[in-house]
């Protein structure tokens, strides 16, 4: 029995792929068998893991191809972490799926046979068909958001989309993950307070703004491998402890599994 988590925000550039790759590889390092599925036509999951782009997703979901799950899964090169990659062919896939009946269930159906412990769905920054299919397939929704007004609006949109699908999904909001947090800027601080006042305990420890995330992506490595001491992983030093960062978020995520 696997747990499926959709990582979604309709606003782009909020750290969805970085979050999916970092949490996926982090869980894999903790012994969980993880499947990371890229639902974005940009295929950035493959870039982040140093893999070539491929039409894995189209081969899995296209009604005329319909490859079995095990034939489209690629090993990421990291123990316990498998991926289903995406590329430009996903655009054509979406057009093909648009004419199908019960298309919102397509991901939930194909993932039923998965032998993984955790499935992470890295969604595209748009409210499209795969976006809805991800919410129907998911048990939990994780919404990364930059700490600025437009991205925080994206959180509201994601929640509205989930509410609209309430009748056909069991998906629950697991958390809202503030990314690109800068503790010295007033705007970051204000937006974090705003999020905390609105969503309370759903707001997860923020991820500090860290250039190492971009550099790691350039080298096709995960943060755990490229920069294990990165601020984005370990959080801010506060006295004798660390606050925020993916390491702390990973501990929260493990509680949901």
């Amino acid at each position: 029995m696997h747990t499926t988590m959709a990582i979604l925000n309709q606003k782009g550039g909020v750290g969805k792929t970085t979050t999916a790759v970092t949490l996926g590889s982090g869980l894999a390092r903790n012994g969980y068998r993880v499947l990371l599925i890229d639902l974005d036509t940009q295929g950035n999951v493959a870039d982040s893991l140093g893999l070539p782009h491929s039409d894995d997703l189209r081969r899995l979901l296209s009604p005329d191809l319909h490859f079995p799950l095990e034939q489209v899964i690629t090993s990421s090169g990291i123990d316990h972490l498998d991926v289903i990659r995406s590329d430009k062919s996903t655009t054509a896939l979406k057009q093909t799926l648009a004419g199908m009946t019960l298309r919102e269930y397509i991901l939930a159906d194909v993932l039923e046979s998965s032998a993984h412990d955790v499935i992470l769905l890295d969604c595209a920054p748009s409210a499209d068909l795969l976006h809805f299919a991800a919410l129907v397939a998911a048990d939990y929704l994780l919404i990364p958001t930059r700490l600025d007004k437009l991205a925080v609006n994206g959180v509201r949109d994601a929640l509205q989309t989930l509410a609209a699908l309430q009748r056909i999904t069991r998906c629950q909001v697991a958390g809202i993950l503030p990314t690109f947090y800068e503790r010295v800027t007033l705007e970051s601080h204000e937006q974090l307070i705003h999020l905390a006042q609105t969503f309370g305990k759903l707001v997860l420890p923020p991820i500090p703004q860290d250039t190492q995330c971009r550099v790691a992506t350039r080298y096709g490595k995960t943060l755990w491998d490229y920069a294990p001491n990165a601020k984005a992983l370990n959080g801010y030093e506060q006295g004798n402890r660390r606050v925020g960062g993916y390491l702390q978020v990973l501990e929260r995520v493990k509680e949901w599994l």
Partner: peptide, 13 residues
């Protein structure tokens, strides 16, 4: 006026 929040968020705030 914060509601109950994650201890890490509370600490940073």
């Amino acid at each position: 006026e914060l509601p109950v929040v994650d201890p890490a968020v509370e600490s940073l705030l």
